[in-house]
């Protein structure tokens, strides 16, 4: 569905060249749900804008829905749907008018466009607002209207740029419900950008981590976490048993890194343990056999933030604000 090779974008700001996207290679198959994850300014949106013909690549090539973006941008546009960061509805227009016009722009006739618009308004719970002007809608309602606009022509490939930014948790869940349902019913291929870790984690099957214009990881969220971060294990033992445990845990820990704190005659070890949920029981048994039983144990599965931290040395949670 998408194939890029060495896709690059360079901006010139005050005579200084800034490489926003540095030769990325992306392949997306039909029916995939892919999230571009990265901090603000990482190049996610720039990449998306090149794929949707809104921005001309500086070099490299991209084929989207079987069409080259530079050779036939109009062909790409007629085959994809795009939901941008901003609100797509014109301020002074009525909701229903904008939806029908959007359908017309894609070559639908008025009857089909109206039927489709009514259907989308109903499923996005906007039907009572169809005659309202866009400026009178709330933020969440406008975002749902954006989704309706993007889905008017039932695209088989849909791009969403930061779809849930600024939405409250309820609206966000609601939005995802619609996207997921559409995917289930029509097998739509979906590519989105996000800087919400939880969103990339729970919603996407595949996460492409982008930082400083480069792809630094590309896999399922589960694989990324188990390969790159591993579970976080904390074990407490009595001070007397510490020496025996130190050796055992040190061998198991990722890169042999073992953190140790002491309080009230208890030693607390913390370590990254790839595939920890499977390894922990064996580790506990080894400790028991060595006569150094655990007093307390915590096992925390890794997050995508841990993955990002591992890859870049920075946290996405803090970095996202910069």
């Amino acid at each position: 569905m998408i194939h890029t090779s060495k896709l690059t974008k360079t901006f010139t700001v005050k005579k200084e060249k800034i490489q926003a996207v540095k030769g990325v290679d992306i392949d997306v198959e039909r029916g995939e749900l892919v999230a571009f994850l990265g901090p603000n300014g990482a190049g996610k949106s720039t990449t998306l804008r090149m794929l949707t013909t809104l921005l001309a690549p500086t070099s490299g090539a991209a084929r989207v829905a079987g069409v080259d973006v530079v050779a036939d941008p109009a062909g790409v546009r007629s085959r994809i749907g795009y939901i941008g960061q901003g609100n797509g509805g014109g301020h002074s227009y009525r909701v229903i008018d904008e939806l029908i016009m959007q359908g017309r722009f894609y070559g639908m006739n008025t009857t089909d466009a109206r039927t489709r618009a009514e259907q989308l308004l109903k499923s996005l719970e906007l039907e009572d607002l169809k005659k309202r002007t866009v400026i009178k809608l709330s933020g969440g309602q406008r975002r749902r209207m954006d989704v309706a606009l993007g889905l008017m022509h039932s695209p088989t490939l849909l791009f969403l740029d930061e779809p849930s930014t600024g939405m409250d948790p309820q609206n966000r869940a609601n939005l995802w419900e619609h996207i997921m349902r559409m995917r289930l019913e029509h097998g739509t291929t979906i590519v989105l950008t996000t800087h919400y870790l939880e969103e990339a984690d729970t919603m996407s099957e595949r996460v492409i981590v982008i930082d400083h214009g480069e792809i630094i990881a590309d896999n399922t969220a589960g694989r990324l976490k188990s390969d790159l971060a591993g579970d976080l294990l904390a074990v407490e033992v009595s001070a007397a048993a510490a020496a025996k445990v130190r050796g055992l845990l040190g061998r198991a820990a990722a890169a042999g890194e073992l953190e140790e704190t002491a309080y009230d005659g208890v030693i607390r070890f913390r370590l990254r343990l790839p595939d920890g949920a499977r390894l922990a029981p064996g580790l506990l048994k080894d400790m028991n056999d060595a006569g150094a039983p655990a007093l307390r144990l915590e096992l925390k599965p890794p997050t995508l933030d841990d993955v990002f931290l591992e890859l870049t040395g920075r946290s996405l949670r803090e970095g996202g604000k910069v």
Binding site: T52, T53, L54, A74, R77, S78, I80, Y82, G84, Q85, G86, N87, G88, G89, G90, H91, Q102, F105, Y106, G107, D146, L149
Partner: peptide, 18 residues
């Protein structure tokens, strides 16, 4: 200008309109 400030111009640019 109004449409440039919101995302409405961009949304229209992404359609196949010539």
């Amino acid at each position: 200008q109004y449409e440039l400030m919101t995302g409405s111009y961009e949304r229209i640019l992404a359609t196949p309109l010539s």
